[in-house]
Amino acid sequence: MKSENAAQRIIQFAFIALAGGAWYWATAAGKISPLFLPRPESVWNAFNRLLTLGQFWPPVRITLLTIAQAYAIAALCGILAGYLVTRSKFATEAVEPIIAGLFTIPITLFFPMFILFFGIGTGSKIAYGAVYGFFPIALSAIAGLGHVDERYLRAAQTMGASRLETFRHVLLPYAFPVILTGLRIGFFICFASVLGGETLSSVSGVGRNIALAAELMEPARMYAWIAFVILTAVSLNMLVTALENHAARRAGRS
């Protein structure tokens, strides 16, 4: 078991080392034009230049604020919609397929409309991210809140629970794991769509800076931004996974 684990680690490490080595070798030997793949050290230098020139934090701040606003709207509206739709079984059956069907259409299609309605400032990105994040959250809220065991609801009712109390003490705890999955998916969709919106059409933010660096043919700067985004997303993902594992282990123990 131990040696097998070691073998896995070695293969993973070799894989990453191979990719890094290939990057170093290809750029040092001049096999690839630096326009497509700049040298690792020039990417590092470009990143440092962004930091020292103060060009790094303002776009990051704008993008993070946009994501936070978009996600807050998506989460609130998604859970509220899930709650309202699941108040009757009939409404659930009628409305759920509409939401699920809309979600199969890539909402990116409607991005030009967001630009038309909200302009090229942060407003259109907030709206776009909120709409994109709304669907997985609403669908999971419907799935979670719509399948609460009837007996619990009836028991709460018999014991004279108000609507708010029922929601707080019965519906929410019961549906929470399912909603949490939706919130997680919704967050990463929100994250990606805000960045995508900024790349497509914007005046500020991280996505805009990536596109701008590409347009100005400054690959080192573009790679520095891309590396920042990838590292942020991957570490966020690992953090969420670790939290989930921790919660699952605690739930398993108790």
Binding site: Q12, F15, L195, V206, G207, I210, A211, W225, A233
Partner: peptide, 19 residues
């Protein structure tokens, strides 16, 4: 050994690579 690498790549927001 490789499945975690694939999952890691899957988690990358690819929009940032579009340009």
């Amino acid at each position: 050994s490789l499945y975690p690498v694939i999952l890691l790549l899957y988690a990358i927001p690819q929009v940032s690579l579009m340009p």
